[in-house]
Simulated assay, not measured.
Amino acid sequence: MSEMIYFDHAATTPVHPRVVEAMTPYLTEVYGNPSSVHGFGRKARQALEKARDEIAGSLHVDPQSLIFTSGGTEADNLAVIGGALAQQGRGRHVITTQVEHHAVLHACEYLEQIGYEVTYLPVDETGTVRMSDLERAVREDTALVSVMYGNNEVGTLQPIEQIGRFLRERHIIFHTDAVQAYGVLPLDPEHLFIDMLSVSAHKINGPKGVGALYVGKHVPISPLLHGGSQERKRRAGTENLAGIVGFAEAVRIAEAEREERVAKYKQIKAAMLARFQEAGIAYHVNGHPEHTLPHILNVSFPGIETETMLMNLDLLQVAAASGSACTSGSLELSHVLQAMNLGEERAESAIRFSFGITNTVEEAELAAKKIVQIATRLQK
């Protein structure tokens, strides 16, 4: 049996061997609670704060502005719900987009249930928010805006700095879900006028179950978890020390290798598209042609339903995805592609390929060859 080609790194990534190595002592030897005052606890606390410094450094922010969470979903919920609740005095209106991750969309739906009003901004056919729509949506009682950095399904990058600058002038809190952008793009929330920013470890070859939320110095936030004074009373619960240490190691590696990784992902993307082009199969690339994440490629193959293509790929040892991981397994059309108004056929035949550190250009060539075989057979 040939080796499986894993093109689903946007869903999750393999843990880097160096990350496993960094975590091991914190699962076996350094088992103290970071909140304990004895030697065991102090040693754990030291490791926790060293990891916090490392991750904060990658974002050019004050270590005290980071809140460790159980992942990107919790970070998004804490930002959207915790941010909105803390801003009630200002108003109960929140703005987001139709193409957010479900962690943001479902958090907004929860706010609607408790009496908030949410505006869901449309996007153009590339998946980009129009500044004019945002400007029109902002009101006196707008308390919070959440717009993702780079889309997890089609890769489109939003005009984050422009949005941030506009909102900063109006003193409106701005959150961005940067889970897919972290590790592949340089992020500096303070320069981009971002008040809150979510990241996750398992998208950058760290462990599952750990993430972080950056919260700017003067940004109020209401905790969602109660029961302890951890994370400066903003997130109760004993910190996942081994996970956080692993996260910091993954960040260290990603930062050191970023340029080289990005160059490789671009080569992989180009190699696949060149093979489709040469073979003359029918395909459409979804998302913005230039302002896009380097590791995500979303392609529609007209005439072949998403599920059919995925099953055929799986039989040929290629793992890809339909839209976001949280909704795969369900046959619903991608909410992102629907919002982009590309037509039903494009939405029903879309596949997301996402690349990571284990992939090579040779694999891309091989996978593309298999895709061409399937398309040639099924598009007749």
Rank of each mutant, 00 (worst) to 15 (best):
A86Q: 12
A86Y: 10
Q87H: 13
Q87R: 14
Q88S: 13
Q88A: 11
G89V: 06
R90V: 14
G91I: 11
R92F: 07
V94A: 06
I95P: 05
I95M: 06
T96A: 11
T96Y: 03
T96C: 09
T97P: 01
T97M: 10
Q98L: 13
Q98R: 10
Q98H: 08
V99Q: 01
E100T: 04
H101L: 04
H101Y: 07
H102P: 10
H102T: 04
A103V: 00
A103P: 00
A103I: 00
V104C: 05
V104Y: 02
V104F: 03
L105R: 12
L105M: 11
L105I: 13
H106K: 11
H106L: 08
A107G: 08
C108F: 05
C108G: 01
E109R: 12
E109H: 09
E109W: 06
Y110K: 10
Y110G: 01
E112V: 03
E112K: 09
E112Y: 03
I114A: 08
I114V: 15
I114M: 14
G115T: 10
E117Q: 15
E117P: 00
V118D: 01
T119N: 03
T119E: 13
Y120K: 13
Y120E: 12
Y120F: 11
Y120L: 15
L121F: 11
L121V: 05
P122Y: 08
P122K: 05
V123P: 07
V123Q: 11
D124I: 10
T126P: 00
G127S: 06
G127W: 01
T128V: 13
M131D: 11
M131E: 07
S132M: 10
S132G: 05
D133C: 14
D133H: 11
E135T: 15
R136Q: 15
A137W: 02
A137P: 07
A137H: 03
R139F: 05
E140V: 15
E140R: 09
E140Y: 04
D141Q: 12
D141P: 12
D141I: 14
S146M: 02
S146A: 15
V147L: 12
V147W: 06
Y149E: 01
Y149K: 00
G150T: 07
G150R: 11
